[in-house]
């Protein structure tokens, strides 16, 4: 294991985030705050409690999840897409490092950043609404697993994309809609039965539900289904990444 190389990639990626601190940290915090103002304070006061939790507190886990998914994907995809785009990927490919180490560096940095952001948003949320976390360790586990899995997805997108349009295609057309429809702002119990069944096909439901369970001890689906789903995602993402490197897809002609 070439730890020096992994550390170098990791630190360079973290430094890149610090350079673009406004875009990487401030903007997600601002947009999350806006959600709280609109959904929590303005609309939330008209909505009574959802499953025994105030509406403002109810949306906290969903909002963090929304931010976690979009930020993980966009960070990790940009991290690997940019060297491909600028051509400086040659250096990574010619270095004495294994593919696993490359992924560890890039995805590790993207996931770390997402976890930090998640915690910052959590802190921001606590300024708007009071809430408690029943299972803090499970909360952290979900935070880390989700950040890791979606950073891997971002890495895959960053390698697949051959232009900036494609880079934004998946986050805009897949992640955001699925998150909005995945019970971020509502419990799926509030939906008509048909839509409840349809919603269960949305994988993000399981993530939001599991994450919410760690806060309030209740969710739309069982915690085990949520955990199983995130682990399934992780496995699929790892399989795709290892296929990419085995075949040299889009990296090595």
């Amino acid at each position: 294991m070439n730890l020096q190389s992994v550390k170098t990639i990791y630190q360079a990626e973290m430094a890149r985030s610090l350079r673009t601190v406004l875009q990487s940290i401030v903007s997600p915090v601002i947009s999350t705050s806006l959600y709280f103002v609109v959904f929590g304070a303005a609309i939330g006061t008209r909505i009574s409690e959802v499953e025994g939790v105030s509406y403002g507190a109810f949306i906290v886990p969903g909002l963090i999840m929304l931010m976690l998914l979009t930020q993980s994907v966009s960070n990790a995809s940009f991290g690997i897409f940019f060297p491909r785009f600028s051509g400086s990927i040659y250096e990574i490919l010619s270095a004495p490092i294994s593919y696993f180490e490359v992924v560890l560096g890039y995805v590790g940095a993207a996931a770390t950043k997402s976890v930090i952001l998640g915690l910052i948003v959590l802190g921001t949320a606590s300024l708007f609404v009071p809430f408690s976390i029943v299972h803090p360790l499970v909360m952290l586990l979900f935070l880390v697993l989700t950040a890791l899995t979606f950073s891997l997805l971002g890495f895959i997108i960053g390698i697949w994309a051959d232009g900036f349009e494609k880079l934004q295609l998946v986050p805009l057309l897949v992640i955001t809609p699925l998150t909005f429809l995945g019970g971020t702002f509502y419990s799926i119990d509030m939906l008509p039965p048909v839509w409840q069944a349809v919603t269960l096909a949305n994988p993000v439901v399981y993530l939001v539900s599991g994450f919410r369970w760690s806060f309030y001890g209740m969710g739309d689906v069982s915690i085990w289904a949520s955990l199983g789903m995130i682990l399934l995602f992780l496995t699929v993402a790892l399989a795709v990444v290892s296929w990419i490197f085995r075949t040299g897809y889009r990296l090595k002609p």
Binding site: Q4, S5, I97
Partner: peptide, 28 residues
Amino acid sequence: LVPQELTSEAFSTVWDTVSFSRGLFGKP
């Protein structure tokens, strides 16, 4: 390897990018 194309991480400094290369190749 010095490639033909002038490729670079546009926003990092000369010192940082050269140090990055050393670390990437596993050297302290």
